[in-house]
């Protein structure tokens, strides 16, 4: 019996965002946009979904006079990401 893949993470853009955040302390919106190649609107929607699930936190501030949105993975997000990767490995190992 395979574990169910987290539907929230099993989406290309959300998975990319959580993978980036898993490797850094925190990252700002511009960096996420550059790394994923997503549009601002699309990225905002996916970030909101991850925030609502408690996987990431979003902090709005300023860098000089420019507004800056900073995202950070939460312990719950790290746990979900780890579970997701473990589940993927099980799927792949089960292949003949």
């Amino acid at each position: 019996m395979f574990p169910k893949l987290d539907p929230l993470l099993h989406s290309e853009l959300r998975l990319a965002v959580i993978s980036i955040l898993a490797g850094v302390d925190e990252a700002d919106f511009t960096y996420l946009k550059k790394q994923t190649g997503a549009t601002s609107g699309n990225l905002s929607v996916q970030i909101d979904k991850l925030t609502a699930a408690g996987y990431i936190t979003v902090e709005k501030g300023f860098k000089g006079k420019m507004p800056r949105t900073t995202c950070k993975i939460t312990p719950a997000g790290q746990e979900a990401f780890k579970d997701y990767v473990d589940a993927l490995k099980q799927y792949l190992n089960a292949k003949p």
């Binding site: 893949l5 099993h10 989406s11 290309e12 993978s19 993927l88």
Partner: peptide, 15 residues
């Protein structure tokens, strides 16, 4: 990058 693209396990791991 699309948010609703169906991915296989291999594609997810590669990503």
């Amino acid at each position: 990058m699309e948010q609703n693209k169906e991915m296989t396990a291999q594609e997810s791991l590669s990503l």
